[in-house]
Structures are given as C-alpha cells and as structure tokens.
Design a protein around this nucleic acid. Structure first.
Lengths: 309, 309
DNA sequence: CACACTTACGATATTCGTAAGGATT
DNA sequence: AATCCTTACGAATATCGTAAGTGTG
C-alpha cells in the first residue's frame, strides 16, 4: 500500500472512471489499472466493481474513501508544512533577550527580519540576563541575547558589540556640558540605580569595586524608563549601557561617555552549543549579525553618542 | 515523499542510528541512507544532523517526528481496518426483517453466523414488511427479509421458503384434535387478527377475498405474542404464518394446517439490485441460504408442524 | 584504527507505456 | 462498432546491496 496507490484510488473513486483518472494522475490507463490492482491485492479484496461500462465502489471501497481522503490530506499537509519550514515561509523562532536589548535594538532588527520573512513568527522573551541563559539551557528558546556567559554554561557566544556604560544626567546638570565624565565625578552626585537582581547592576558594582569606588545609591527602579525620568527630573544621575542612549534621550536626559574606568562588556547571541538551529532561527541569527556594523559602542569605534566624532 | 521514506525516517529518529534502523527496516545501510536523503531532498532540507559518530534530529526533523508518527499510525490503521473487513474479522451488516422472521428464525441463524464471524456485528431492524423494502431502497440496510415484492421495486429477491398460514386454536377448542382445518370452519370461530397495517393481515384478507370469505375480526393486536395469549386464553382463534408455530406453542396455543385454500407466500432475502454487497453482508446472505433446508413449510414438504409425517 | 554514515556502481525489481485482448452497450 | 478496462511484454526507471570512500573519536 503506497501513497501513489491511494492517490490512484481517490482519482478513480472521484471520477468513477479509469480513463479520466489516468489523465488526472498523468499515467497511462494500464499503469493506473495495475496500481489499483496492487492496492486491492494488498488489502485483500476488490475496491471497485468494474462492469466495463462503468466503475463503482464496492462497500469496502466506500469504507476506504473517507479514510483515504484524510490520509492523503494529512500526508500533503505534513509535507507542505515541512517544505514551508525549509523555505522560511513558515515557522516560529523563539528568542530571549535582556530588556535593554529587547526594548531598543531588537524591534528595529525584527522589523527588517519580518519584512524579509513575513510568514515566520518570532516569540520574544524580554527577561533578565540570567533568565536568558536559563531559558536557552532548558531549550525554551533557540536564541538568546545577553552578556557573554561563563564558558561552562554550555552555550555558544557570538559577539555582536561591546557595550559601555555612559553617564546619564539631566540637561540642567553641571556635568551636561562635558564631553566625557570620570566615574569619580559622576558618583559625587546622587545616584539612581537599576534595582537588583540585574546583570547591569551587578556588573556595575563589580567593576567599580575593582577601582575602589562604591555606588551611593539614592533611588532604585526595575525600569530603565523610570530611571531616565528620574534623571531628567533632576533627582540625580545614573549610568546605563550605551544601548539605552536613545531611550534616555527620548526621556529628556543627557548621556555622556564615562572614563576611569571604561566599563565595557561584550554582548552577543547565545545558542545552545549542542543544539541545531532551525532554519528560521538561523535566518534570525544572520539578521542579527547583519546589524553588527550598526551597533553603538562597536569595539573599533568611539563612544557612539551618535553626533559628530 | 513515500511511505517507505517516512518509515525510514521514524526508524532513524527512534534509534538515532542508521545502523540500528536499517536492521529494523530489513534493508542495507546504503538503501536507508538513500531513502533518508531522498526524503530530505523532497522536503527541501536536512532532517538529521550527521556527525559520523552520532545522528541527531534537526529542528525540522523534530517538527516532522510527531507528524510522521501520526501519519504512519493512521496509515497502518486504515490498512488494517480494510484488511480486517475483507477477512471478515470486522464489519457491520445491517439487515431489516419483518417481525415474524426477526423474532423466530433470525436469532437462530444469527447465533450460527456469530459463531462463525464473531467480529462482525449485525444491526437488526425489526420492522414491518413495507419498511423492509423502504429501508433497502434508501440504502439504510444492506439485506432485507420479507415477502417477495413487486418486480418494479428495484430489489432482488432470493427465495428462502414458502410460508403457509396455519390455524391457531386453544387446546380446549373443538378444532384442536383435527389434523387439518378448512378456512370456512376456522372462520366460524371468533377471530383474533393482527392489526393493520401489516403485510400478513393484508395478505390474509386479500387471499380470502378471492375465495369469497371474510374475516369476522373480534380482537386485534399489533403483537403476535398478544394474539397467541388471547388464543390460548380461549378468546378465539387466529391464523398465523407457519413461521410462528414455535412461538405459538410456547404461548400454549395449538397450530393446525389450514386448507381450502392453502394461503402461501414466498419469503426470501431482498437486496438492492444495483448495489454491491459488502463481504460481511455476503457472508450473512450465505448463512441465511444455508438454513434454507431447515425452514418450515418448504415447498416440497408437508405442513411442517414438527411431529410425525 | 575502528566505527558510522555516504557515495559509487553493477544487479535486481518495479513500474511504465504500447499494444493486444475481452466485455459491454 | 465503439468504448472502457484488463492483460502481456519489452523498455525505462528506481531501488537495492556490495564495496569503496570519508570523516570522526
């Protein structure tokens, strides 16, 4: 019992004529006749009653008809679905990105991706850095965007860019005019920090500790937006990844490169190292890489503050 | 995309090894490798990631796996169902029989049929003669058992036996001792008839009319059982098809052959003449024919009252 | 170097189409 | 006689298995 045979059966059952059916199947009458015969033999009895003048279904043929329809429909559907997957005309990519990326660059990249592969849906998980890694490890997502994890995490890291901390100050601040700010100077102001747990906050504190600096935290928030609003309202200053410059500007805050030390951290695409990527995920991977040159704070560029060099 | 290819895919996906899978499929490694390759090409991308040392599914392969399982399961189920039908190990026969037959002989025949084909279920419609014909014509049943219909009914008639009317009297009746009763004598008694509409009643009245006899109906009932009870209670006499002799005896009534005239009517199997019989129906048809010699009132035998000749 | 899958190639089976056969209208 | 399905047979195609090739642990 082969697919071809069942298709032949359907063709004959629909037209009730071998002559018509063989045109539909693009085979000769004899080939079709043999196919039906083989099917009937494999099933153990006749499916059609042939009277040389007209063809009719036997009761067993009637019983097979709905089954055959479903079988062929399911068969074709499965085949088409897989083909569409491979042709990137269908599919689902799951990606987890840390909030600063998910909220700033990812939407732009996805717009590009979507225009190229409109049939592929993307499920975005906007979660903190640590959850990105967890979700990858338990295969909840295929792709992750986060800081470079420890090498023992079982994940592959493909760097996209190096993120540096920039100072965020209100436009009325005395620091606003400077072209770069040393950390010591910034920390003299009331500091508005991202709340723990947060990879950004951790990195910040750890790096400053190496330089024997400490964070005089005045206010805390989980939301970057809130931090930005607080700064622009003159409540204090903050430091955020360069990625968030655009967001901060929209909130009316000024961003200035920080120095002494320049705190930087590679950010990139994470994948489970022993897992294969779906073609859809591979496509998104490549769309992400295609944006590499357009990221701020690229290792070989300046502060990336947007304006003149 | 063939069935064999999908089976090969499942075998490899389950074992994650071409070597093991090819044993399962009873083919050589190369044949299996080619099958998978052909499947992958027909779908447009790789289903397995081969690393010469181990085989794993690609995400597309993972997507295909559940689909393939269902596909093959459905495929095999459909095939098995059809095979069982042809082997008479499955199936359903629908038969409509007039009550006198359905209640007397049919159970015995079905017991025999059932012991031979235990997996085939039989749906019996115990309906009046006219409904038997209707149900056949609208294909509600495959087989019917009834009087011979008019030739224009579009039904084929295969005679089983000729039914004759016998007198039913109570054991206290003065008629009880006779070996045969003329109709005129019987009709002198209060008559208990089957209620209209009923083919038996119609036939009775029509035949008597030809002999210028009329039915002095005293009581009527739809149920043969009720008629029998009434007779054995001494309320009157009746006349029933010989088929019902057994039933009447159980109810305590006596049956005696009738003469002047002998009213007889062929009873047989009806089938729709332009319809094919399922193998299951064909089997039941033959089981019915096999009982032909054991019917009462066979044309070449006597009154069939069971006892001595 | 051994194992596991792939590729190459000759042999075998299967399938196909043309042509002849048979049955019905 | 015409139509429609089946059967027969040679040809084209596909599939299979053996054996050689390739890459990995």
């Amino acid at each position: 019992m082969t697919v071809k045979q069942v298709r032949a059966f359907l063709a004959v059952a629909q037209t009730l004529s071998f002559a018509q059916a063989c045109e539909m199947m693009h085979v000769s009458q004899s080939a079709l006749s043999l196919s039906i015969k083989a099917l009937e033999e494999s099933l153990g009895g006749p499916l059609f009653k042939r009277t040389t003048r007209n063809v009719r279904l036997t009761p067993e043929g009637e019983a097979l008809l709905p089954l055959a329809r479903r079988l062929i429909a399911d068969w074709d559907n499965a085949r088409d679905e897989l083909r569409q997957r491979f042709r990137l005309q269908q599919g689902l990519v799951t990606i987890a990105a840390m909030p600063s990326f998910a909220g700033n660059l990812l939407p732009v990249i996805l717009r590009d991706f979507r225009s190229r592969y409109p049939k592929i849906s993307v499920r975005i998980q906007d979660v903190i850095n640590e959850r990105v890694i967890e979700m990858l490890q338990v295969r909840q997502v295929e792709l992750g965007i986060a800081f470079e994890p420890s090498s023992a995490s079982g994940l592959d890291f493909t760097p996209l860019y190096v993120d540096r901390f920039v100072a965020v100050v209100s436009s009325e601040s005395p620091l606003a005019g400077l072209s770069r700010v040393p950390w010591e100077r910034l920390l003299a102001e009331p500091f508005i920090a991202l709340q723990r747990p947060s990879a950004v906050r951790n990195m910040l504190e750890q790096s400053l500790r190496d330089w024997k600096l400490s964070l005089p935290v005045e206010f805390e928030s989980h939301q970057l937006t809130t931090v930005g609003r607080m700064v622009s309202s003159g409540l204090g200053v903050s430091a955020v990844p360069a990625l968030c410059i655009g967001q901060m500007k929209e909130l009316g805050a000024h961003c200035i490169p920080l120095c002494d030390p320049v705190i930087e951290q590679p950010i990139g695409i994470l994948t489970k190292s022993d897992e294969e990527l779906s073609v859809a995920a591979q496509a998104l991977f490549e769309s992400l890489l295609a944006f590499k040159g357009r990221f701020p704070e690229s290792p070989d560029r300046d502060g990336g503050l947007g304006s003149a060099p």
